[in-house]
Simulated assay, not measured.
Amino acid sequence: MHRIAFFGPEGTFTEQAARSLSGGEAAAELVPYETIAGAMAAVRGGETSAACVPVENSVEGPVTATLDELAEDEPLVAVAEALLPIHFTVLARHDLAAADVRTVASHPHALAQVRGWLSANLPAARQVATASTAAAALAVQSGEYDAAVAAPVAAEHYDLAAIATDVADVEDARTRFLLLQRPGRLPEPTGCDRTSVVAAAANRTGALSELLTELAFRGINLTRLDARPIKGGFGEYRFFIDFEGHVAEPRIGDALAALRRRCAVRFLGSHPRADGVPASIQPAAGNEDFVNATDWVESVRRGDTA
């Protein structure tokens, strides 16, 4: 049985994602780590074969801890992803009514996603940020806080009562999670894939535009673009770029080679998209077009045709 690290403790949305990505609870041992960095370090150190971590939320945007860890230290690559709807359960001690809640704890991203609900339903409660939604539930169980905004799975792990379920200010809020492994054999292309890279572009006019133009010239559609500062280089940034397609495809390989010619690039993975959306192929930008063009150039070099 292989082991999968996840951003814990037990009872987080990341645990739910890890369950789905592991193929079921019996298929792998899920090991909680207190931080995203800790979960990823477990893979790098060989303690686990993979790590499940959040990478972006449709309301709060990128999970910067994940992005920074992907850009630094030994490389890890994403081999799968999960997309979870984010609706929360508000947990409290069994002897406490909602009207008596004076403190409510959760991860900052979670608090931001239920700000309206808290204002309407627990207006007297002081909001407290914790390291994770599960850490908040654990703190409530120990008597540190009155209530926690947590993932539904937390109710399985902690002896608390649900005072509200299916809580969300944005009904279709979702978080995307990655399954990370050390570099090795990649998943086969499916036609509904996502490739991710991080590029350290030069700090000069037009540098980012040049990178994006390489993708646009090849008809490749972006699905995400984020910038993060480079430590020790004020005003210098890394760009995290997700786009449709798989590195095994000629058009994607051609684009990656072009990006690499322009700047330092770290490959972060190619894997099937959780939403199953197929890549949009522009006219004259299909894989067969790239293969035919390369074959034509080779024939010219051989002198077979003009």
Rank of each mutant, 00 (worst) to 15 (best):
A18F: 01
V277A: 14
P229R: 03
G233C: 08
T103A: 08
G191V: 07
D166T: 11
A306V: 14
D275Q: 10
A255S: 12
S106D: 07
T294Q: 12
Q141S: 12
D254V: 08
A41V: 04
I281Y: 05
V297Q: 15
E214C: 11
R266D: 09
A274G: 14
D169L: 01
A154L: 01
P187N: 07
P54E: 09
V170K: 09
L84D: 09
A98T: 10
R224K: 12
N203P: 07
C263F: 02
V59T: 15
V90H: 05
A112S: 09
L268G: 12
R302Y: 00
V140W: 01
A248N: 00
A92V: 15
D146H: 09
L208G: 07
A105Y: 01
A97L: 09
L259C: 10
D295E: 11
R224D: 13
W117H: 13
E60K: 13
N203Q: 10
P108R: 12
G219M: 02
A137M: 06
V300C: 11
Y237D: 00
R224L: 08
I36D: 04
A18S: 08
A28T: 04
A200Q: 09
A82M: 01
V297Y: 06
T305Y: 06
G45L: 11
A151K: 06
F239D: 01
R126K: 14
L160M: 06
F88R: 05
P229H: 03
